[in-house]
Amino acid sequence: MLTSIMEVLSCKSLSMAQLAEELGYSVRELESALEQMEHMGYVRREVLGQACSPSCGKDPSSGECEGCSFLSPEGFAFWVLTERGQILSGQSSGK
């Protein structure tokens, strides 16, 4: 399961549901496995799109940027391989 996730992560981008369908596990199982892999240092969860400029404040209720003219859209959360994960994945594919 973990190895299959790494294999997929090394070559294509998918949504969590698509990954679940491709590997035949539930989204819950995948989330749990990804969290474990993150704990082991092979994957990392990243959130992009929520940075504010230095002059921006943050609205406490919405959590969005304030004072930089226009608010940034939502953040996008996704899982990527860490450098260690990439090395392991590369070695596995060459094995």
Partner: peptide, 29 residues
């Protein structure tokens, strides 16, 4: 992907539709 653009970069680009300043800042990640 067809153009070889980095996947994660695209999310910063989407933020650019709101404001380019925080979108450029978002590349920090």
């Amino acid at each position: 992907q067809l153009m070889g653009l980095h996947g994660k970069s695209f999310f910063s680009l989407v933020s650019g539709f709101g404001c380019n300043v925080p979108a450029i800042m978002a590349t920090r990640t």
